[in-house]
Amino acid sequence: MSSPGPAASVELLITHGVGLHARPSVLFTRLAKSFPCTIEIEVNRSGQWLNAKSIVKVMGARIRKGSTLRIRAQGLKAQEAIEGIEALFASDFGEPGADERSHVRGA
């Protein structure tokens, strides 16, 4: 990552019914864009880091239920970004019937 500054990361298990389809992907990228830091994702430890602020990259990753998503942020408000993303996942993207299951695996 090229941004200097603080760094934070988390690993999440995708438990959303159909993975990160259109609506969750839009919510995720919109949230990522709200932070001034660099935010990247890696799916299933592929070694390929993608820009989490790009809806094209996130949708193109075809992130399915059961996938492991590593998220890293670097720069101003990196820790806040990770905490916000964790909260979005924990709420099951605000969909009805979301339970309080834990999506966090640790980083």
Results as ranks from 00 to 15, higher is better:
2 S>H: 13
2 S>I: 12
3 S>M: 11
4 P>H: 10
4 P>K: 05
5 G>N: 10
6 P>T: 03
7 A>I: 00
7 A>Q: 09
8 A>L: 11
9 S>T: 00
9 S>P: 00
10 V>Q: 12
11 E>I: 04
14 I>C: 07
14 I>H: 13
16 H>Q: 07
17 G>V: 07
17 G>F: 02
19 G>K: 07
19 G>P: 05
20 L>D: 03
21 H>V: 13
22 A>H: 13
23 R>Y: 08
23 R>Q: 11
23 R>G: 03
24 P>G: 01
25 S>W: 06
25 S>A: 15
26 V>G: 09
29 T>H: 08
29 T>W: 05
29 T>A: 02
33 K>F: 09
35 F>M: 06
35 F>L: 04
36 P>G: 04
37 C>F: 08
39 I>V: 15
41 I>V: 09
42 E>N: 12
43 V>N: 13
43 V>G: 04
44 N>P: 03
45 R>K: 09
45 R>G: 14
45 R>S: 02
47 G>T: 09
47 G>N: 07
50 L>Y: 08
50 L>T: 03
51 N>I: 00
51 N>G: 01
52 A>F: 01
53 K>W: 14
54 S>Q: 04
56 V>T: 07
56 V>H: 13
57 K>D: 14
58 V>I: 06
60 G>Q: 02
62 R>C: 10
63 I>P: 15
64 R>T: 09
66 G>M: 15
67 S>H: 08
69 L>Y: 00
69 L>T: 14
69 L>E: 12
70 R>H: 09
70 R>K: 11
72 R>S: 08
73 A>G: 05
74 Q>G: 01
74 Q>P: 05
75 G>A: 07
75 G>W: 06
75 G>H: 00
80 E>G: 03
80 E>R: 06
81 A>C: 00
81 A>Y: 00
82 I>T: 00
83 E>L: 02
83 E>K: 03
85 I>L: 15
85 I>A: 02
91 S>T: 01
93 F>G: 04
94 G>F: 07
95 E>M: 14
97 G>K: 08
100 E>D: 15
101 R>S: 12
103 H>R: 13
103 H>L: 07
107 A>H: 12
107 A>R: 14
